[in-house]
């Protein structure tokens, strides 16, 4: 499982404050902690309070890379902000994200090509988030076809079926899980699949349990990546165990420890 650590995001107040005050040690600690707990990528988002997101992105990327050698997922709705990060990354990055609208995809995939980056493709378009798996599948196919037009490889695309909070969109859980299963059939080699996990538990009062349960179900349906909290040890343990049961790793009594030594 590819773990994309979600904690460096300006929507969290402490991160927003650290960005505003240029508190490098706060960001670097978040980066180092997530890397130590098994994150494969770190999501970097300047957040809604950022007054100069391009400069903030530049500062975040530089601060993180001074401390840890880990690839980044550059997360913004503004492509010039993402490009600011792409100019600086030392490892191959993920662009987070495009939707299925042609004009957005053109811009994102051009950037991906230019900077040799991977990209997350959200299966939504101008008309919003689909409420069934068929529409999600249609948009996923569209994203994948477009990315191939730009010479990207299927495995460099992370298809995101868009997870919605279980307390407001309860019918969507099963649709998302089935979407993940079917996205895998769209090409060979398979595209990656990703979810913004924490969204499923928004507003619930047992967030960790809801996240953990959904992640295991998604892995069972073939999920290959998740944007999630790597510091939630039980969550990471559950994902390792789910993959063990799917025979992705060889069992041994210390299988959690073994996975973390990878």
């Amino acid at each position: 499982m590819i773990i994309i650590g979600e904690l460096i995001n300006g929507m969290y107040k402490d991160v927003a404050k650290a960005i505003a005050n240029r508190e490098e040690d706060v960001i670097q600690r978040l980066a180092a902690d997530q890397a130590a707990e098994g994150a494969n990528f770190l999501d970097v988002n300047t957040g809604p309070y950022s007054k100069s997101p391009k400069e903030d992105m530049k500062w975040l990327v530089e601060s993180i890379q001074k401390k840890v050698d880990i690839p980044l997922a550059l997360d913004s709705t503004k492509l010039d902000v993402i490009e600011e990060g792409l100019k600086l990354v030392k490892r191959r990055a993920i662009i987070n994200s495009t939707n299925a609208d042609d004009d957005k995809m053109d811009k994102v995939f051009m950037l991906a090509k230019k900077y040799n980056a991977q990209a997350i493709g959200l299966t939504m378009d101008k008309s919003g988030v689909p409420n069934n798996k068929d529409k999600r599948l249609e948009l996923a196919a569209k994203i994948l076809a477009k990315s191939i037009d730009y010479g990207l490889k299927a495995e460099d695309i992370y298809l995101d079926p868009i997870v919605l909070p279980v307390n407001v969109a309860q019918t969507q859980g099963a649709e998302v899980l089935e979407s993940i299963r079917e996205f895998r059939l769209l090409s060979d080699p398979m595209p990656n699949t990703v979810i913004g996990l924490s969204n499923v538990s928004q507003g619930t009062n047992l967030r960790s349990l809801v996240n953990r349960t959904f992640l295991v179900m998604a892995i069972a349906n073939g999920l290959t990546a998740a944007i999630m909290d790597p510091l939630d040890k039980e969550l990471v343990d559950a994902s390792i165990t789910a993959e063990l049961i799917l025979n992705k790793h060889i069992y041994c009594d210390s299988f959690l420890n073994a996975y973390r030594k990878r």
Partner: peptide, 14 residues
């Protein structure tokens, strides 16, 4: 036994 092989490697490296 591949499972035990892995386990002992972990124990020793620990």
């Amino acid at each position: 036994d591949v499972n035990i092989a892995k386990q002992i490697n972990i124990l020793i490296s620990d």
